[in-house]
């Protein structure tokens, strides 16, 4: 599943997931970024960060983890 616009944040503590997603969306500018998170903290932080930068966030619950699709 991972490709060059997928950010795998699983198992990482604050603020690494946010930092990784921030770097990815800043590098891309627009388009689609997929982030995989496995903690509530990471999920909420990524959602807030992406939304504040004008990205639309869609969250898919996969039980053990969440897949966040960011588009702009």
């Amino acid at each position: 599943m991972p490709n060059n616009n997928t950010v795998d944040c699983r198992g990482l503590g604050c603020p690494e997931p946010m930092l990784m997603v921030k770097r990815q969306i800043e590098a891309q500018g627009k388009g689609k970024v997929v982030a995989i998170a496995d903690s509530e903290a990471a999920r909420e932080n990524i959602k807030r960060l992406a939304t504040s930068q004008g990205w639309t966030v869609q969250v898919e619950d996969r039980g053990e983890e969440w897949v966040l699709t960011l588009t702009k």
């Binding site: 604050c14 603020p15 946010m18 930092l19 921030k22 509530e40 903290a41 909420e44 932080n45 807030r48 960060l49 504040s52």
Partner: peptide
């Protein structure tokens, strides 16, 4: 709420995130 007293300063500086 994931309240923390290190995170507020860190997130504000790194991401301008006031949560």
């Amino acid at each position: 709420t994931r309240m923390c007293l290190i995170g507020p300063v860190r997130d504000l500086i790194m991401f301008r995130d006031p949560y």
